[in-house]
Design a protein around this nucleic acid. Structure first.
Length: 448
RNA sequence: GGAGGGAUGGCAGAGUGGUUGAAUGCACUGGUCUUGAAAACCAGCAACGGGGCGACCCGUUCGAGAGUUCGAAUCUCUCUCCCUCCGCCA
């Protein structure tokens, strides 16, 4: 969520910044709403002040045993006007909120202009792409040969975009999780957390998935206490547009970023608490609505996958240094696994809703002969913090101020598994185990 | 599933219709004292929003929402969450 003060004072800057993302901001509508808001708010508050003043006088008069009748009459006349004014204000506020909640974060000045993937900028590449003296297979073929990736079984059990991993490959998958967590906790100073996989709408609002991206999420009906049906004809008039079904659903987490970042929701940290760094392994659930036909082959894009997520909560001055650090931590995993990758700075138009700047790590997949995203590391600045009121106390001002939040994958486990399969394959379809993982695999050096 | 009890400022915890945005303690900030620190003492200290160049002024907020009232932390209703006991259970 943007600071509404920026919209009020520097609307042109906002327009320009959003244009960098390829978004044309409806300044006209905003200014109209804002003018209306100001007018109604001032009027409402004047009425409230008058009512409060008179009510206090009534209290005093009654205490002294005087006659409050004249004032009582005057104040009761304010009632209707005030109520109407308050309702009007509520409507305008709501429209403004809806508008504000739908505006994505403004890109940092170092973010390249652009609207799509093609405009992302390559920062660096790491590692040598291995050359094979045979035609490298992709993970689907390798999975078939070894019998350890079973898409048909998953289709039977669940449907498309699921997979069953079997045998030593499942073990390798588990080994990757241990390896990633251990590295981040023991070498990078993260605190490991284990979180709920079902989250509420407040949490999703906090990180920015709601209200705009509800279609991407799996909803879980929530058990509600039984309530009596209210006869429709009586009640329907009064139930205005504000009839959100707010807490009727839980949601499956699309990323551990949601529960972990929300640890900071409505908290005020002391300056010495920061930075906080959390590492969390979790499954992730995504409906993938709107991605029909995209990445249908293999386990690149699944409804359910596992990920080790890194989250930083930092002093606002340090968030860009933290972004470099966090990205570096994700890179370490790829380096230790000796998987070739490149680092991309996402262009403004390709960034997620909450991000001010994002680096993507893309791993080389020889079976597909291309780089594929395996981690996305973002600085959200105060965008999420404002939505969830995550603050720290500045001792210089003695006031609570917004923290900055960052998140990144360190790494996506399923895609890392694919990368190992494709990069470490042998001509007869076996998979070599990267050195650093062998201790997690009972010392073996090859599977398949 | 059954029976009770609760939710108030950063934290703990008073407050049951009228200058209560809220006693008190802790924490925090500034000061006195001290060689320095601690202790003691003095003072300050909720958040959010609006108006004004500004000194300031105003509004909202005591889990959330609705209601009663001239006036609600306090009364009514609904919801959410937490705690205790019993039952069941990985």
């Amino acid at each position: 969520m943007l600071d509404i003060q920026i919209l009020r004072k520097n609307i042109n800057d906002v327009e320009t910044a959003l244009l960098k993302r390829g978004i044309v901001f409806d300044t006209e509508t905003f200014l109209q709403l804002e003018t209306k808001r100001k007018e109604i708010q001032i009027k409402t508050q004047e009425l409230q002040a008058r009512r409060n003043k008179l009510s206090k006088e009534i209290g005093l008069i009654k205490k002294q045993g005087g006659d409050a009748e004249p004032i009582l009459k005057e104040v009761s006349e304010i009632g209707d006007t005030l109520k109407q004014s308050e309702q009007e204000l509520g409507k305008v506020q709501k429209s403004l909120d809806t508008l504000l909640h739908g505006i994505p974060n403004l890109p940092h000045e170092t973010v390249p202009q652009g609207v799509a993937e093609d405009d992302n900028v390559e920062n660096k590449t790491w590692g040598d792409r291995k050359t094979f003296d045979f035609k490298p297979k992709d993970h689907v073929e390798l999975g078939e040969i070894t019998g350890m990736l079973d898409f048909d079984a998953a289709t039977k059990i669940s449907g498309s975009r699921f997979v069953v991993i079997k045998g030593q490959l499942a073990q390798l998958h588990r080994a990757l999780i241990q390896f990633m967590l251990n590295t981040h906790v023991n070498e990078h100073g993260y605190t490991e957390v284990n979180v709920p996989y079902i989250v509420n709408s407040d949490s999703l609002f906090g990180t920015g998935q709601l209200p705009k991206f509800e279609d991407d999420l799996y909803k879980v009906p929530r058990q509600k206490a039984e309530i009596y049906e209210i006869p429709v004809d009586i009640e329907s008039e009064n139930k205005s547009s504000g009839n959100d079904d707010g807490e009727e659903y839980y949601y499956l987490l699309p990323t551990a970023e949601v529960p972990v970042t929300n640890l900071a929701r409505e908290e005020i940290f002391s300056a010495s608490d920061l930075p906080l760094k959390f590492a969390c392994h979790s499954p992730c659930f995504r409906s993938e609505a709107g991605s029909y036909g995209k990445d249908t082959r293999g386990m690149i894009r699944q409804h359910q996958f596992e990920k080790v997520e890194l989250v930083h909560m930092v002093h606002p001055d340090n968030s860009y240094a933290a972004l470099e650090e966090l990205t570096g931590h994700a890179e370490v995993i790829l380096q230790k696994l000796d998987l070739p990758y490149r680092v991309m700075t996402l262009c403004a138009g390709d960034m997620g809703f909450s991000a001010a700047k994002t680096y993507d790590l893309e791993v080389w997949l020889p079976g597909q002969s291309r780089y594929r995203e395996i981690s996305s590391c973002s600085n959200c600045e105060d965008f999420q913090a404002r939505r969830m009121m995550a603050r720290w106390r500045n001792l210089e001002t003695n006031k609570p101020e917004l923290i900055h939040t960052l998140n990144g994958s360190g790494l996506a486990v399923g895609r890392t598994l694919i990368a190992i399969m494709e990069n470490y394959q042998t001509s007869d379809g076996k998979i070599m185990i990267p050195d650093v993982l062998q201790e997690y695999m009972g010392g073996i050096s090859e599977i398949g």
